[in-house]
């Protein structure tokens, strides 16, 4: 390494070693690549929901004004929430369905374990079986099914009917026919009093 020639700048001497030079160049390239990749992450992550969106408020809903057989739609995190006060007949119909007949055997209930079966008891409100609270979005491509208003066509199973591609849901919000792959989802909610629920 040491160069005895006094006219040569000794600090340059090691650079004559090609392997060392290549190592440095590879190192420089690696650093540039790492730097670029790391800088990319904030540019991607900034598009994710921000802190205020993630903390979005829960909502309180008063169920007292909803008579049997009626339904209301409320907004939660920008999504429609279907709240249906089911008739005894509708509850019976939902209970009579055998699990084997279901397209999607899972309850899709955020308040229960992921693998809970899609029985009506697992779909309806705990201990308040007339009440069905679910996110009113068709699991096919995100349209909002018909069936909330009195005069709506509710499909062959008396629940909801999605006008976009004809998915049909039963009175427990389970997919029975059509292209949708999953039952409509149940959001996290709880009764705060006999007639009030808090969603979220």
């Amino acid at each position: 390494m040491a160069n005895s020639d006094s006219s040569t700048n000794p600090s340059l001497a090691y650079d004559d070693d090609p392997s060392r030079r290549d190592v440095i160049l590879i190192g420089a390239g690696a650093f540039a690549a790492i730097g670029g990749a790391v800088a990319l992450w904030p540019l991607i992550d900034q598009m994710n929901p921000d802190a205020s969106t993630l903390s979005l408020a829960s909502i309180d809903v008063d169920l007292a004004p909803i008579d049997e057989g009626q339904a209301i739609t409320v907004m939660w995190r920008g999504k429609p929430i279907f709240i249906r006060h089911r008739t005894a007949k509708e509850v019976e119909e939902a209970k009579d369905v055998k699990l084997d007949d279901l397209v999607d055997p899972l309850a899709r209930n955020a308040n229960l374990p992921d693998d809970a079966p899609a029985t009506d008891a697992n779909r309806a409100a705990a201990d308040k079986e007339p009440w069905l609270v679910m996110i009113g979005i068709c699991t096919h491509l995100g349209c909002i099914p018909k069936g909330q208003a009195i005069g709506d066509y509710k499909g062959e199973y008396g629940g909801w009917f999605c006008p976009c591609h004809g998915s049909q849901y039963d009175t427990s919000g389970r997919i029975r026919k059509g292209p949708a792959p999953e039952n409509m989802y149940i959001p996290p909610y709880a009764f705060t009093s006999d007639t009030k629920i808090k969603i979220g």
Binding site: P42, D45, Q46, M47, N48, D50, A51, S52, T53
Partner: peptide
């Protein structure tokens, strides 16, 4: 520009929202 709001009511606040709430804002 994906987060900024060019309105006299919202501009200042949207900049501060970028600073506070947007990931890496």
């Amino acid at each position: 520009a994906m987060h900024y709001q060019p309105t006299t009511e919202g501009a200042f606040e949207s900049v501060e929202r970028i600073m506070r709430d947007v990931n890496w804002g």
